[in-house]
Computed example of a mutant assay.
Amino acid sequence: MSRLFTPVQVGRYTLPNRFVMAPMTRSRADDHGVQSELAVTYYAQRADAGLIVTEGVFPDAAGKGYVRTPGIATEAQVEAWKLVTAAVHARGGRIFMQLMHAGRISHPSMQPDGRLPVAPSAIKPAGQAWTDQGQQDFVTPRALSTDEVALVIEDYRQATRRALEAGFDGVELHGASGYLPEQFLSSGTNHRDDQYGGPIANRARFMLDTLRAMVEQAGSDRVGLKISPEMNFNDIVDANPQETYTYLVEQLKPLGLAYLHVAPYSKEVDYHALLRPRFDGAYLIGGGLDQASAEAALADGRADATVFGSAFLANPDLPQRFRQGAPLNTPDRATFFAPGAAGYIDYPALTTAEIA
């Protein structure tokens, strides 16, 4: 039997298969960060995954980085997410919420009262933000004070509580893609001189303290972490990524996290060989996988489960298609972040005849 279709233990849950749906920004929420009814259908369609991880969800209004992205900071947002989790659970699925604070990768037009985005240091990123007025240059963010860092960590704690209230099976910290946790972790974006800056032990403190806060709310077996060494997205750079990520993952051991999702971008360094032996929970890998490469990763022990992004986006019945050897739908990139149902909930599933 294909290992993709065998059960796997991830934290407190025995998942029926080793398919994980990756967190993917889809920008279908309203201007208040309230998830749309379309999202109920979207996630329920994909509930055959062993585990769904939602798109990035801002824990507090200051964490919003893109237009039409959802939050978990208000009662209205919680109530909208309850419909999503109920629909996934009705189909026998499991779903974690990814908590994502964009930090400096935002714009005043998306911030409360038009304020500056926050960051570990006042360093302007290269590039542009997607706003309702089109693309606009990033601005120089405001550096968080030491006291404010504690408040942001508390935001993650409360967001975890609200995610559980909304019916989620667990939460994932987005520690990649140049967003706030990685901004603290990376030497190029963190020039602080307090306990959250300087040597790697200090730069990793924000991510580790945030994970501890999330674990205190949810239990370690319902918390995961995503990292992407050397992705360098959103103008993120670290002077010694191998040292940085080795240290970070070694510090995760006492936390007992449910899983670590690693999607590295280096062609020179085998980060899976470097990091997997240092992590005791379920090890998830992603990044451009197809059926053959996923099977190979499971067969040679490089992963416990495999993460699929655009393949799940365009194929709500991806496990069934793999099982049948059926062709895959092609993702329509023009609709990835566009409002409405097109390219969101209208990708066709296999017909009864095709399944037979």
Rank of each mutant, 00 (worst) to 15 (best):
Q133S: 15
G114M: 05
D113N: 10
A129W: 10
T131Y: 09
A129E: 09
V139F: 04
P112D: 00
P125A: 01
S109Y: 02
T131A: 09
D137E: 15
A119K: 05
F138R: 06
G114A: 05
Q128C: 13
D132N: 15
P112W: 03
A126E: 13
G127T: 08
P120L: 04
S109K: 05
D132F: 15
A119S: 12
A122I: 00
M110A: 06
Q136M: 14
Q111K: 06
F138W: 12
H107F: 09
P120I: 03
D132M: 14
P120N: 05
Q135V: 11
Q136C: 08
H107D: 08
A119P: 05
G114E: 02
W130I: 14
Q133F: 13
P125S: 00
S121M: 03
V118E: 03
A122M: 02
A129V: 05
S109Q: 06
D137P: 11
I105C: 13
A102C: 14
A122F: 01
K124W: 08
H107C: 12
Q128S: 15
A129N: 09
D113G: 01
D113I: 00
T131C: 12
S106T: 09
K124H: 04
Q133C: 08
V118Q: 04
P112Q: 05
S109P: 04
W130A: 15
L116N: 00
S121Q: 00
S109V: 09
A126W: 12
P112T: 01
Q133N: 15
H107Q: 08
A102S: 15
